[in-house]
């Protein structure tokens, strides 16, 4: 098996897949902890559908660099969705449902009316499920992804304490002088960037899993914010790497394999947590 892996590694697109996979898994797990604790777990799904709709529009408009449209649209949607959390006429979960399903339907409709390639079902399927999209990246995409991921990780580290304070008790933070509105906007923008990047790894429909599972797995075992974040990042990267390796060797779709690895890790962590509680810690 190691020889086979080495042979595969001769291909540049396999190396790209691993680089991008690790970076995306790292970023999404960090923000995953924040999302899960703010009770916005489903936002990954909602935003990815919006990104899908934006991508359809970009393809129809024949934009050479689709990111120019997808990123701003997703960031704006993220800001709108996360702001309606606290006090809005339309509650958070209804807003997510409306926007996400609407965007998905609209995107698919557009792609049918203005088909951009002969294989429509294939393109849609590949975008939704990410069967081999991680292995079909060009060097430019890898560079863009690397830059954005490093930026996200830096932002997270620099604003870590602020993010913890706002996630734990937003009212207290606001009352004692923290600019919670700016912090929430920042979190929204970062989440949007990660969602757009993660579409390449696991496809639109499975992004939620990449964001939620590592955080939930880590919370089964650890109970301080810092250790949960670190463990979540660790687990996410391990599962992404295993998922890609298994999918390359066994010929399974990459996206689903990564999510399956995440689910397996969650199961094991839950078991570990039960054992730990059982031994009376």
């Amino acid at each position: 098996m190691p020889d086979k892996l080495l042979m595969y590694f001769q291909h540049p697109f396999v190396r790209y897949a691993f680089i991008v996979g690790v970076l995306i898994a790292l970023c999404s797990s960090l923000l995953g902890v924040v999302l899960v604790l703010k009770r916005f777990s489903y936002i990954g799904d909602g935003l990815s559908h919006v990104a899908f709709g934006a991508m359809a529009v970009a393809a129809v408009m024949k934009l050479t660099n689709e990111m120019l449209l997808i990123l701003p649209v997703t960031v704006i949607s993220a800001i709108l969705l996360l702001r309606t959390g606290q006090n809005a006429k339309i509650r958070g979960d209804a807003a997510i449902a409306m926007i996400s399903v609407g965007a998905l339907a609209f995107g698919y409709l557009l792609m049918n009316i203005f088909p951009t390639s002969s294989n429509l079902t294939g393109d849609v399927c590949s975008t939704l499920f990410g069967s081999a999209s991680i292995l079909t990246l060009t060097q430019k995409e890898v560079v863009l992804c690397a830059i954005l991921s490093v930026a996200v990780v830096l932002v997270f580290i620099l604003f870590y304490n602020r993010i913890v304070a706002v996630t734990f008790d937003e009212t207290f933070a606001k009352a004692t002088g923290v600019n919670t509105q700016a912090c929430n906007l920042l979190i929204a923008a970062v989440i949007a960037v990660i969602i757009v990047l993660a579409m390449n790894l696991v496809g639109s429909l499975l992004i939620s899993a990449l964001v939620i599972f590592p955080a939930l797995s880590a919370m089964r075992i650890f109970s301080s914010f810092k250790s949960v974040t670190i463990c979540s990042a660790f687990l996410s990267v391990i599962c992404a790497v295993s998922g890609i390796v298994i999918s390359i060797l066994a010929g399974t779709p990459a996206g689903s394999t990564i999510v399956a690895a995440d689910v397996a890790a969650f199961g094991l962590c839950s078991l570990a947590g039960l054992i730990k509680r059982g031994t009376g810690r």
Binding site: L37, R39, N161, R162, V164, A165, F168, D169, T171, F172, A173, A175, T176, G177, V178, M219, F222, S223, S224, F225, K226, S227, V228
Partner: peptide, 26 residues
Amino acid sequence: YLPQHTALQKDFPASVREIVLSGCQG
């Protein structure tokens, strides 16, 4: 500020030290 109710989730992972330190954030 000590609020009356903190709408906290049941299993929020935070150590006491992290919570007390977060008071310094402002």
